[in-house]
Design a protein around this nucleic acid. Structure first.
Lengths: 230, 230
DNA sequence: CGACCATTTGATATGGATCAAGCGATGTGG
DNA sequence: CCACATCGCTTGATCCATATCAAATGGTCG
């Protein structure tokens, strides 16, 4: 099956020529391109830790293939996911000297790593690099603010918002391949997996989406979802 | 009464020599000091809008006295407060070309305003200015991430976290003068005013705090509050 | 085929919202 | 100087959205 093959090549680790992703500001794929030149490429297995909370923030990371998440786990086991990073996205700059969140591979992933000091020292000499670094940070800030905003919405609003966000970042708008399990979505949205599941079912019953497989979501009526996010 | 006088001078608009605030990284009061030199000072009445959502983000702002909040109001009237800014804090850089949140004065406030283009062009020439701009953005990002983290906690955790955060920024740790009404706290924490009120009462019953006046909070047992935030 | 894991589905519990007074300051006009 | 209105806050009673608990189902891989 054609789509299944695409899915496999994109998410399962046998990445064949990391696809250029659509619907993404050019700057994001292009800025800090130098990272790929100077950085080292590393592979991570599913759920492998990329860095831990409180570890010194010595590196920046760029997703080549696969997907990463940042998160904070609390004593009682509750977990908040800070963000998901897809191919082309850069992460690890969220902080001062040490990481405030840990990072893990959602699925088998290739990540390019570069010393933070190199970037910062480059930014100290090259005004363009400095500007790129700032742009990147600003983008991260906007994303975080946006995330913050949906945490005081209702469950349907959160899930609809998540789907629309993923659709914008997806290779083909209108069809989403989710790299992450329901638990990750739940922890990102501050809901239980059961509620996430029920909301998806509800959207499907309203024929706003179709669910050919748990990790595959087809957006049928974008307007219905948009109407939900208030 | 001594403390009452301090309160008045700080929050009521007859600001006498904006106090240097304690417990705050030096960089925060010092960075972008130039703003005060080149910027224009403006006064805002209580609840006056400083800028609106979707307005072009042409300026940066620094609180001289008083307090500001950023927020987003939804169709149904629900409101999420993004952050509070106290004297010395800079805001308005959260975004790209237009503000994603609006900003208002919490109480009568003096705000210094500087053209964003000026700052950005300065940063384009001066590597130090660029670095300061980046530092400021990073700090904002960290604050936002931290805020994000408490939105999936329980009500007591959120309120305790808020008190500890305010205490750290307060002039005198151990005694907090809140510039904002309960509704603002509720909208910042994603709770109802009733719940905020009940949590405060609960902390008072546990003698973790004292409430000599609604806007005045004395921290008696910091450890109890810290224990609550999990 | 069988075991395991992720997901879905159903039943019940609960934290916090909402609804509805009451209360205490602050300010205003008589 | 005091009655009274107003506003912000608190308190109590009830309700509801979502969590939690408990199976059942389905998909994947050895």
């Amino acid at each position: 099956m054609l789509t299944e093959t695409a899915f496999e090549s994109r998410w399962s680790g046998r990445e064949s020529g990391q696809a250029t992703r659509k619907g993404f500001p050019a700057a994001c794929n292009d800025s800090m391109r130098s990272i790929e030149l100077i950085g080292a490429s590393m592979s991570f297995r599913r759920n492998a830790e990329i860095y831990g909370e409180r570890e010194p923030a010595d590196y920046l990371y760029k997703v080549v293939s696969g997907a990463a998440r940042t998160c904070k786990v609390r004593l009682d086991g509750r977990r908040q996911i800070g963000a998901f990073y897809l191919p082309g996205d850069i992460f690890g700059l969220e902080t001062g000297d040490e990481h405030t969140l840990s990072a893990e591979a959602v699925i088998p992933s290739k990540i390019v790593v570069i010393k933070r000091a190199t970037v910062i020292s480059l930014a100290g000499r090259d005004i363009d690099a400095a500007h790129q670094l700032w742009t990147l940070t600003t983008r991260e800030l906007r994303r975080t603010q946006n995330h913050l905003l949906f945490l005081n919405k209702t469950a349907p609003e959160r899930v609809a918002g998540f789907l629309l966000e993923m659709a914008e970042r997806a290779e083909f708008e209108g069809e989403i391949e989710l790299p992450m399990p329901r638990q990750d979505i739940a922890d990102y949205l501050g809901l239980s997996i059961e509620t996430v599941s029920r909301m998806l079912r509800q959207f499907e019953n309203a024929s706003a989406i179709a669910l050919p497989a748990p990790r595959r979501i087809v957006l049928r009526k974008r307007a219905v979802l948009k109407g939900l996010i208030a």
